[in-house]
Each structure stands twice: as structure tokens, then as C-alpha cells.
């Protein structure tokens, strides 16, 4: 039954489109109805004029019937809405200057705000695409009265990693490593980061293919590629895991490709590969 109702709504929606033709068709149907009623009246002995008058009375008014039929044909509230809209559009079109200025005003105001809010969202609000952003913190060291902040020395990192109990894992990365990459195409210099082997576990970074590094293997000749580099130089090869890549003359085995949204933890540096930190010393 509900299906029947839906079907009726659908036909009524369609009915709004062909309204003109439907009106004409129903007018014809009504005309034939009145004509037949009139015929019967004449047969019963009425004058043709009186018979027709009676027929219209039986019907309850041709115009009213037309209207009732029309209302059943479409969806009245939707028609009102459409009428309001088309009427509104026509009014706005008549005052083209005012309309243009109003739309331009709102548009410029909204455009300016959307642009700056996009920047705020990008640089201040947006969390990095790593695991659960609420449980992932960034640590720096500070010295003396200087309010900001230095990178960790490696011993300071290992001390903290081994002794802090507040964290389920502490990973570190070395900000920037330049490397040359050859193979197919123009030789290129690319930037990457050296990371502790637990980096991908701690950050819970989503991978496009493959995996991160195995915790504890700080010197493994393995590399995780950024999605951009993977697409640019390796044609987004889904079967890249296990293949060798030569960085600055040394051979690394690709173990994974990281999500395209990730470039670096601070979301400013645009780095494209990650190798275990042991390789960089």
C-alpha cells in the first residue's frame, strides 16, 4: 500500500511537468461527460439549454471540478513552492541591478570568509591524518627560560622512551634528509625523514599499500614512500612492496606507501620518504 502511495506521489510529480496537456485532456473528458448528461436530459424531454444547465449542476461546476482534478494531479505545496520561486526569480530579474549587487555582496563576503577559514582550517585546526589525534602528542625540549623549543638529542629520546610511563609509545623523527633518486625518468633530489622503527606504530598512519617498519629493526634497509613520490616515479604501482629503490646510491626495499594526506608530522614540511633512523647515522 505504501508502494502504491509512493507510486501516486511519483506520478503526481510527473503530473506537474505536463500540466498543460493534462488540463486539455481533462477538459475534453469533462466536455464529453456534460454532453452525455445533456443527451440524457434531452431524451427525458428537457430543452437542450435546460438539459445542459442541469448537467452542469449535476457535475457541481465545471471549473471547480477542473480545480479539484488539478490539485489531485500535482502536489499542491510543492507547486506553491515552485510558484514562489519562479515568482521570486522574476521579481529579482526585474530589479537586475539590485539583485546583482546583493548577490555580489553576499558572494564576496562569503567567499572572503570561506577562503580565510580554509586557511585557518588548514594551518591551525586540521589534525594530521594520523591515528587518533586526541591521544597523539608532540614533544620538544626547552632550555632555561627560553619558552620555545629544541629538538631532542638521541640519548634524551631513548631516556624518555624507556622511562616515561604516560605514553603507550614514543617515536622520534629526524626532520630532513636529502637524497637522490634515479631509475626511470629524470634524476631528482627528494627529501625524506629518518624515523625510529616504531614511528608508524605510534602515529598509526594509514598505509595505501604495505606496512610500516618492524619495531626494533633500526637499521633495516627499508623505505616507506610518500603517495606523491609513489605516483610520480612509480606510476602508483600497487605491487611495489618488496621492490628495490635506490636512494643516494644505496638500495632500500619498499615496505609500504603512506596515505596521500600525510607529508610530515608538522604538516608543513613536504617530505616524501621515510627510512629507519639507523640508516642515517
Amino acid at each position: 500500500m505504501t508502494m502504491r502511495k509512493l507510486r501516486a506521489v511519483w506520478i503526481r510529480l510527473l503530473g506537474m511537468i505536463g500540466a498543460q496537456r493534462d488540463d486539455e485532456e481533462f477538459a475534453a473528458e469533462l466536455a464529453s461527460h456534460v454532453a452525455m448528461d445533456t443527451d440524457d436530459g434531452v431524451r427525458a424531454g428537457l430543452s437542450p439549454a435546460e438539459a445542459r444547465r442541469q448537467a452542469l449542476i449535476h457535475l457541481g461546476g465545471a471549473e471547480q471540478t477542473q480545480q479539484a482534478h488539478r490539485e489531485r494531479r500535482g502536489l499542491p505545496w510543492l507547486e506553491t513552492l515552485v510558484r514562489d520561486f519562479t515568482y521570486g526569480l522574476r521579481t529579482l530579474g526585474r530589479h537586475l541591478g539590485v539583485t546583482a549587487i546583493a548577490i555580489l555582496s553576499i558572494g564576496l563576503g562569503i567567499g572572503a570568509n570561506a577562503t580565510i577559514f580554509s586557511m585557518v582550517s588548514r594551518f591551525v585546526l586540521r589534525p594530521a591524518p594520523m591515528g587518533d589525534p586526541t591521544t597523539l602528542l608532540g614533544l620538544h625540549t626547552t632550555h632555561g627560560s627560553d619558552p620555545c623549543c629544541n629538538n631532542f638529542s638521541f640519548p634524551a629520546y631513548t631516556d624518555l622512551r624507556d622511562q616515561a610511563k604516560s605514553f603507550s609509545g614514543v617515536a622520534a623523527y629526524y626532520e630532513l634528509i636529502p637524497a637522490s633518486i634515479g631509475g626511470g625518468g629524470q634524476p631528482e633530489r627528494v627529501w625524506g625523514q629518518g624515523v625510529t622503527s616504531n614511528f608508524f606504530d605510534v602515529t598509526e598512519l594509514p598505509m595505501v599499500v604495505g606496512r610500516g617498519f618492524i619495531t626494533g629493526q633500526e637499521n633495516a634497509p627499508e623505505v616507506v614512500l610518500g603517495a606523491g613520490l609513489w605516483q610520480r616515479r612509480f606510476n602508483a604501482d600497487k605491487a611495489i612492496v618488496g621492490k628495490p629503490v635506490i636512494l643516494s646510491g644505496r638500495t632500500f626495499t619498499v615496505v609500504g606507501v603512506v596515505t596521500p594526506a600525510f607529508h610530515s608530522v608538522d604538516q608543513i614540511l613536504d617530505t616524501e620518504f621515510w627510512v629507519p633512523l639507523g640508516n642515517t647515522r
Binding site: V124, M130, L137, G138, H140, D266, I268
Partner: peptide, 15 residues
């Protein structure tokens, strides 16, 4: 005189 500072991971470099 060294201490640690914490911020949200993924935020801009503090400097």
C-alpha cells in the same frame, strides 16, 4: 635546565 614542552601532534612547528 632542560624541560619538555607538549603540544598536539600535527600542529605547526612551535616557533
Amino acid at each position: 635546565e632542560n624541560r619538555f614542552s607538549i603540544d598536539q601532534a600535527g600542529s605547526l612547528p612551535p616557533r
